[in-house]
Write a protein that binds this DNA or RNA. Structure first.
Lengths: 75, 75
DNA sequence: AAATAGGTTATCATATATGACAACCAAAAG
DNA sequence: CTTTTGGTTGTCATATATGATAACCTATTT
């Protein structure tokens, strides 16, 4: 798995988790105190997020970081 | 837990895992194709690493990213 | 039709992660 | 004592993540 694939997987995971909580990007961005545009970029897998960014998202989604970045098990 | 604390925890975890494999920073850095100095900074919790950096480290340590960033359970 | 909702993309400014390099330190080995 | 080992710290250059803002798009609602 290369870095682009990883970014994509992380982005997909954020989206799936967000949707499963039934909230919009705008909403999640607000909870994280993020810029909405950046969340869109993240979910699209277009950036290489920092651990602090991912932590904020995990907190907003009420899961651990480990759970958030658990993208390897599904292969 | 604030971002500085998180960085510190991640850094500690990297160190502990590295030491448990019995390899030096220089060694791990080489496997990851990292600059040794940066690994030192990471372990010291002085930087906010990107997911790609953490992924490379997790691969070198032969664990998943989720395992690497699992710093919340102990507290 | 116009307004709203949800999301996407671009541009720009700023902070900083990372690489490269070098110098330093303490402890251990020779 | 000198050399080696393992790690730390600083400086600088470069790429880019993130925030701020704005414009755009589609679908739905009013």
């Amino acid at each position: 798995m290369n870095i682009n694939q990883l970014q994509k997987k992380i982005g997909d995971r954020i989206r799936i988790l967000r949707e499963s909580k039934g909230i919009t990007q705008q909403n999640l961005a607000a909870i994280c105190n993020f810029e909405k545009a950046n969340l869109s970029r993240l979910e699209a897998g277009r950036t290489n997020p920092t651990i602090s960014t991912l932590y904020k998202i995990s907190q907003a989604l009420e899961i651990s970081i480990a759970e958030l970045v658990d993208v390897e098990t599904a292969n």
